[in-house]
Nucleic acid binder design. Structure first.
Length: 655
RNA sequence: GCUGACGUAGCUCAACGGUAGAGCAGCUGAUUUGUAAUCAGCAGGCUAAGGGUUCGAUUCCCUUCGUCAGCUCCA
């Protein structure tokens, strides 16, 4: 204590490496003012020894200090955090009894959760936004204060949600509260100097949200908003939201006539129209060809099975909430027999494995099946193709010896990269998901399994994140998150290790020691599900598929009826070489038909006029190329097209 | 499943509690087109379904189904 008191000055190191000696207790704002008034005005917060701090918080020790202006993610987080407080301030003024939950900054914005007797209506939101503008105009200063636990309890005695949070703070944690105008919040901070810096914001929507994210607890009313330092940034963000909705696969699916979901049949069940079915067909072909090259065998298994199978596998009762209820027995069977639609293929593949004796020489056995399964997903979670109840998994199960695990995982990661990275050009991110709360099997087995996955990932030199508690109930997994063009992440590929099913089904192989051993089992799906994958592809390509995947690859358009027979011949010749060609000889203008072809995102429009018929050429218009057409002999076009399809080129016109 | 909003022609959208409309698509005819919408005519609806209030309901209320956003869950 005596030593500290003796230190009247501290050393502040700035980003450029320069050092300033200032009195202890100097704030970042004072440091900024020393540098320049302009910097002080532009400052939003500061990085003190790597932590984001309020400008007004006294610095009492030697520190590195960086003044944060309005650019950069940290400064935006501060703005949005303060915006959340301004929102809560407004809500508290309009609804004095409102309980306050959490109000954090998030990507692109912020939210705050309120406990109110009646949910907010859109009109309420407009009114709240108005009030929030007043709060911003008043430029209420944010004041940070550290308080004792007792003091905090007193401060928030009317806020049960805050009290609950308060009691979770550890004994060593600093309890800080922030005050702006009439509003006090238990909050770690940091904040802007005042609400006056919150200028360009918009409340987006309200929604229910469970307190603490727990569906057993009360539902609070969450208000989402976005905030930016510059008006241009706000406008750009709102514009981006609009653009994003234009590439929504549900809308494009309708426009391009790819698929439908019909109320008469039920939610989450997909009708693949001819054009969408083409895409599914190509994906099936691709993966089936590829796994055959990689030593898998294809199998087919029943869609319904006796429910005892799922009892033995452990799906019942653990996974029952996701399964459709049991249906009755087949004719002639006992009334006590029940059947279930399969939610997963693993038990079926296990039965193929166990249908005969296996030798260590047979392993690994890799069984693949592009199969439909049915899962009774909660209605509120369904979302176009991205979350459905009738799923088509490109599923496979690998049965192998312990010493083969790492190599098999390694190979699966290679297959994943081949399909996602090379063929489709998608960026993806890996997560290692560990044991969940609801699980089967003991912790020792989980330890071994989790380590095996980590080892394979590391051997491949892949970066991965941890998803603690995110594993399947039967084993840990490596999940692949695919980012679509809008930036949202979806789980696609999944690679799962499973020690449980082999145990439950008492799987065996005869080892070189002539004794029975238990194989290890792995589950994996590269696309994840065809539905989700196609949905992602639609959004990724904005419906403009590469030629090999395009439902309609070529549209042949005769200029007048005189060329219709010749155009028909060209179309039929293309179709005979398995090119997906369509003839558009409708009684419409050329412009009309070109426009229609472009809107349907057909890669190549082949125009046939009198000159082309005479010379045996075609006038090819590539999608999106405007009126830059290319005239070439039909043979040459055919060859180029064939090469482009065969190479699965992602870029139009490139082989 | 939960909270809220929404559901009108094939699609996108209008219509104070007072006879349901438009554009596109479709059909018929004219037109025969050289690279993003030719013209005219016609047809298209138990306003998601069911119940209620009312002289009268697309409009107000209730129930069910579905969609959307978010939460929870998940491929």
């Amino acid at each position: 204590m005596a030593v500290e008191a003796a230190r009247l000055t501290i050393r502040i190191t700035l980003p450029d490496g320069s050092v300033r000696e200032v009195p202890a207790g100097t704030t970042a704002r004072q440091v900024a003012e020393q540098i320049s008034q302009g910097l002080a005005r532009a400052a939003t917060s500061a990085k003190v020894n790597g932590e984001t701090w309020d400008l007004s918080r006294p610095i009492n020790q030697d520190a590195s200090v960086e003044i944060l202006k309005e650019d950069g993610p940290d400064a935006l987080y501060v703005l949005r955090h303060s915006s959340a407080h301004a929102l809560a301030t407004a809500v508290r003024q309009l609804y004095p009894g409102a309980g306050i939950g959490f109000g954090p900054p998030i990507d692109d914005g912020f939210y705050y959760d309120f406990e109110v007797p009646r949910p907010f209506t859109p009109e309420d939101l407009a009114q709240i936004e108005e009030k929030m503008r007043e709060v911003a105009k008043e430029d209420q200063q944010f004041a940070r204060r550290e308080v004792s636990r007792e003091e905090a309890r007193e401060l928030f005695k009317g806020d049960p949600l805050k009290l609950e949070r308060l009691e979770e703070l550890g004994p060593d944690e600093i309890i800080s509260v922030y005050t702006n105008g009439p509003f006090v919040d238990l909050c770690r901070g940091p904040h802007l100097p005042g609400t006056g810096r919150i200028r360009h914001f918009k409340l987006l929507h309200g929604a229910g949200a469970y307190w603490r994210g727990d569906s057993r607890r009360q539902m609070l009313q969450r208000i989402y908003g976005t905030a930016w330092y510059k008006k241009a940034d706000l406008d750009q963000y709102l514009h981006r939201l609009e653009e994003a909705s234009k590439r929504d696969h549900r809308m494009l699916g309708k426009q391009l006539d790819l698929f439908s979901i019909q109320e008469d049949v039920g939610p989450g069940l997909i009708f693949w129209h001819p054009k969408g079915a083409v895409i599914q067909f190509q994906l099936r072909r691709l993966i089936e060809d590829e796994v055959l090259k990689r030593g898998y065998d294809l199998v087919y298994t029943p869609h319904i099975t006796r429910e005892d199978l799922f009892r033995r596998s452990g799906h019942l009762p653990l996974y029952e909430h996701n399964q459709y209820p049991a249906m009755g027995a087949g004719a002639g069977e006992s009334d006590e027999v029940r059947y279930r639609a399969k939610p997963m293929n693993c038990p079926g593949h296990v039965l193929i494995y166990s249908s005969r004796q296996r030798s260590y020489r047979d392993l690994p056995i890799r069984l693949a099946e592009v199969a439909n399964v049915y899962r009774n997903e909660l209605s509120g979670t369904l979302h176009g193709l991205l979350r459905v109840r009738g799923l088509t998994m490109d599923d496979a199960h690998i049965f192998c010896r312990e010493d083969q695990i790492e190599e098999e995982i390694f190979q699966m990661l290679d297959l994943t990269d081949h399909i996602l990275g090379k063929v489709f050009g998608l960026d993806y991110r890996l997560d290692l998901a560990t044991r969940p709360e609801k699980k089967i099997g003991n912790d020792e087995a989980w330890d071994v399994a989790e380590q095996a996955l980590a080892k394979a990932l590391e051997r491949r030199g892949l970066k991965y994140g941890m998803d603690v508690g995110g594993g399947a109930f039967y084993g840990p997994k490596i999940d692949v998150k695919v980012r679509d063009a809008i930036g949202r992440e979806w789980q696609g590929t999944t690679i799962q290790l499973d020690y449980q099913l082999p145990l439950r089904f008492e799987l065996e192989y005869i080892g070189s020691d002539n004794k029975p051993h238990r194989p290890v089992m792995m589950h994996r799906a590269i696309y994840g599900t065809i539905e989700r994958f196609v949905g992602l592809l639609i959004e990724h390509f904005v419906g403009a598929f590469p030629v090999w995947l395009a439902p309609e690859q070529v549209r042949v358009i005769p200029i007048t009826d005189d060329q219709a027979p010749a155009a028909k011949k060209i179309h039929e010749r293309l179709r005979a070489t398995a090119v997906r060609s369509h003839l558009d000889d409708r009684n419409e203008t050329l412009n009309y038909r070109i426009r229609d072809g472009e809107l349907m995102k057909v890669p190549y429009i082949v125009v046939v006029g009198a000159r082309e018929v005479e010379q045996g050429t075609v006038a090819v218009r590539a999608r999106g190329a405007g009126n830059k057409q290319e005239i070439l002999p039909l043979d040459a076009f055919e060859q180029r097209l064939a090469a482009e399809i065969a190479s699965r080129s992602l870029v139009l016109g490139k082989i």
